[in-house]
């Protein structure tokens, strides 16, 4: 069953230029999709249309077979959570507890239920020790985990990460990506927007966007074999795969591919 169905979606901020140009694709339940592209390729705009923050001028978006409109947006947003790039600009609460509660408060979840969900999800993402801490006492990685707990507590099952790792240092970033991997294995549908091929490589499928259009969308392994897509779009392959491409030996390629997709 398709979790998300996007049909012929176009969006423009101004009249001169289409930021999204006739975009169509679908995502199945439990899949992990990476959307790759440079700044201005339209990938963040796409993410905003998926959670109903922007309304496309034409085309339709269906989430779980319900069409996303102004009327259905409130209910569908319970299913789709989004984590943004800047950890500081999405932390609404004065403390970690308040922030995890924010989405639930909006859904009118009873207080007792909120308290138990906060305990559960804080533990799940590993911030249970910081519940009373203020954001200025947390690292960027911890703030992003709090953001994840906030949307998990709303019982979302589609998680969108809009460059959520790009402001973190490489070590914290690795931690977070591995955590996202765990969530995906538990059954969450994950859409990860990134400009780093090293991150995209962990996904089941990769979508490459350019000037508001999808230029490639396929299984990760298939896409990585097509060198020209990467060259044309100035996307740098992971170093190990670049070596494999240069050596042109099947055995070497297999080992390095295994190595890359594991780490």
């Amino acid at each position: 069953m398709n979790m998300i169905d996007v049909q012929n979606v176009s969006f423009a901020y101004s009249e001169e230029k289409l930021t999204l140009n006739d975009v169509s694709f679908s995502i199945k339940k439990g899949e992990w999709i990476a959307i790759l592209g440079h700044n201005g390729s339209g990938k963040s705009t796409l993410a905003k249309t998926l959670v109903g923050l922007l309304e496309p001028q034409s085309g339709e978006i269906h989430i779980n077979s319900t069409r996303l409109t102004e009327e259905t947006a409130f209910d569908l947003r319970k299913k789709v959570g989004i984590v943004f790039q800047n950890p500081d600009n999405q932390f609404v609460g004065v403390t970690v507890r308040d922030d995890i509660a924010f989405g639930m408060e909006n859904l009118c979840v009873p207080r007792e239920e909120m308290l138990s969900r906060i305990d559960f999800y804080a533990k799940k993402v590993g911030v249970e020790e910081y519940l009373d801490k203020q954001p200025s006492n947390l690292s960027g990685g911890q703030k992003q985990r709090v953001a994840i707990a906030g949307i998990l507590a709303m019982r979302s099952d589609i998680l969108i990460f809009d460059e959520a790792t790009s402001m973190l240092d490489p070590y914290t970033r690795n931690d977070l990506i591995h955590y996202i991997k765990t969530l995906n294995k538990e059954g969450f549908t994950v859409i990860m927007i990134t400009h780093d091929v090293n991150e995209a490589i962990l996904a089941d499928k990769i979508m490459i966007m350019k000037h508001g259009e999808i230029v490639a969308f396929d299984q990760t392994e298939t896409i990585l074999k097509d060198k020209s897509v990467f060259l044309e779009n100035h996307l740098e392959l992971p170093v190990a795969l670049e070596i494999a491409n240069l050596v042109e030996d099947e055995e070497i390629r297999r080992i390095l591919w295994e190595y890359v997709s594991e780490t």
Binding site: L53, I82, F84, M104, E105, N106, C108
Partner: peptide, 17 residues
């Protein structure tokens, strides 16, 4: 954006933590 994506609607009823 972050608040709206977490279903905040100004003036609507909310529960409180």
């Amino acid at each position: 954006d972050a608040m709206e994506s977490r279903n905040f609607v100004p003036g609507e009823k909310r529960t409180r933590i």
